[in-house]
Design a protein around this nucleic acid. Structure first.
Lengths: 345, 345
DNA sequence: TTGAAAGCGCTAACAA
DNA sequence: TTGTTAGCGCTTTCAA
């Protein structure tokens, strides 16, 4: 029982023109008399005509929509990125279709293939924790689907990428902990095949090394599921804090892990937790309300979404085939937000 | 530079059949020889054929997608609802298109009209704070677009609705504050034209009245923008706490207002805030990390999304016109989660 | 059992 | 300047 929308044919019939005349009047409108044009436009306005975008898509082989794949919209980082994406896309006349992978490779692939089959004009994606096979993306990309990666990227596909300066962000946070007197600094991080994991790990290690500390592999804990399963985080934190040589600080590589770690800390006695310093990547806007004061690395999420979208639209609207484009990786600076009572040494 | 997907025509040409034969082989498949069917299916499988959903949509006048409008995906309540929606929709073969109104009426209308023109098969919507004119929705609904409201509904459109028991949730929270010895209880709430605002306000008032307390209109503060603008919340909280007769407790009607209020409280001295009790609606999963301990009313958000989606799909797939359907309003129970150190009297 | 042709709504090449 | 026609990919009468 769907309603019958008004079509160009209805207008043509009502006005005694052919459909093509109406079509021409409605769009560009050169090679058409001002008079006819006026009549058609007025009538279209009056009966509230809107072209059927599905028919347009079929004809033009494009949809003016872009697909987005993130792991979780509930994650403030991603919701901020999405706001950035929307801010650009809508102004450029594109619609945004948001999907979630929930950190699962299978779900991610399903989403991407659905989006591609629905003929989105391009794709913005941050890979799931679980993903280490991007061949399906590569093949879509080679077939001509424009893709821009943000946040979690891959080296295997040559296209535009927008990331935070993960190395520097991690470096700064770690060095900050060191400057505040910590020498035993653990690192709680995401799945090892994510780009952000490697970059942040490198920053962490570099800060230790530069400050004459040794990297202790026992202190590095990976969460394969990116913290989707809280127990994974709890286990990691427990291993750290109950070891013979527990760390004095933890540097955490992502949003969900950071809040998950704080939750885990609540299961320990004050004695264990007191004196422990936490620094972590997070874009949560509720950090200031937390009981546990921590230092955070904040990514310019909104801006990241904006830039990725601009780059994608540029690709979509470019006349040149993807293979001829010089791709770039934009790196945005992170911001270190200090725990209230401490200072940057 | 878009890639050329495989069409039914390619298969027909390759196999020497007509397109209609191929089409028949691919779907239903009665009135076609087993042999031909096998050949076609095998070939289609081999070259990885997928029907073009756009063409299908044009033909069938439906898209197997449902549109969702919420105020903010960053809000945990809404992201949980969306997860519930997806869990049902995907299994039923529908795709979900998420949009945000950011509490703005104009944006909401734009989104809805975009979704409708893109021919979503149905709409799930929670109204923006700013919205009090739903005539555009009514007209779409009358033209045959199935709509299911959740959370923030309207009386002006007769269709399925799924809401929490807002009255009871508010009643319970308020009574809990009373049982813990508070008599001066303020209410911080959303825009007055939202359904949830009225329902929660009624619950609040009923609890006061039942317990022999009088309703003090000075204690009721509305935030027209639903807390999108933090200053709005700050101003309201300030008015309450700096009045001659400040409240001993505040019952807060929504997620964003609850966290916003907690932020506002941090601008006051300990003396002012100490002893103040807060109870509020929120589905944030970070409450347990907050410094300020509060009692929360939690809505079954995931379930709400699931039920709303089931009802919507039922409407979409029903053969009867919308006008002949008996609509229902499902009310789900909320959960009162007590602040740690207190008990339910 | 299969094919030819029309049609979903629109645009554009070609004619008039 | 306007109309006719074909075609985007698919399904579905109607003929064969």
């Amino acid at each position: 029982m769907k309603f019958e929308p008004i079509t160009i044919k209805d207008i043509a019939k009502a006005l005694g023109f052919s459909t093509s005349t109406v079509s021409r009047a409605l769009r560009g409108g050169y090679e058409i008399s001002e008079e006819t044009k006026r009549i058609v436009l007025e009538y279209a306005e009056k009966i509230n005509y809107h072209p059927n975008p599905i028919a347009l898509s079929l004809k033009e082989r494009r949809t003016y929509s872009i697909g987005v794949v993130v792991s979780e919209i509930a994650n403030n980082f991603f919701s901020q990125v999405i706001n950035g994406i929307e801010s650009i896309a809508y102004d450029a006349g594109y619609h945004v279709i948001i999907t979630q992978s929930h950190e699962l490779h299978k779900q991610e692939k399903l989403n991407v293939e659905h989006l591609a089959s629905r003929s989105v004009d391009g794709l913005l994606i941050s890979l799931a924790s679980e993903t280490n096979d991007v061949s399906y993306l590569k093949s879509l990309n080679q077939k001509g689907l424009p893709i821009v990666f943000f946040d979690r990227t891959t080296d295997e596909i040559d296209t535009h990428k927008v990331i935070a300066n993960n190395f520097q962000g991690a470096f700064d946070a770690t060095e900050y902990l060191i400057k505040n007197g910590k020498t035993k600094i653990a690192h709680l991080t995401n799945s090892p095949h994510l780009s952000i994991t490697r970059q942040r790990l490198d920053g962490y290690k570099a800060a230790l090394t530069k400050n004459g500390l040794v990297v202790n592999e026992q202190y590095i804990k990976y969460c394969e599921q990116g913290g989707q399963d809280y127990n994974e985080i709890l286990a990691a934190v427990r291993e750290l804090l109950t070891s013979e040589n527990p760390p004095e600080a933890i540097f955490i590589a992502s949003d969900k892990l950071t809040t998950g770690c704080l939750k885990a800390l609540r299961t320990f006695s004050r004695k264990v937790v007191d004196g422990l310093s936490i620094a972590g990547f997070t874009n949560s806007n509720l950090v200031e309300l937390f009981e546990f004061s921590l230092t955070t690395v904040r990514q310019p999420a909104f801006e990241m979404g904006q830039i990725a979208t601009k780059l994608l639209i540029q690709l979509i609207e470019s006349k040149r085939p993807l293979s001829e484009i010089d791709f770039e990786t934009r790196t945005l600076q992170t911001e270190l937000i200090l725990k209230n009572q401490e200072i940057m040494a």
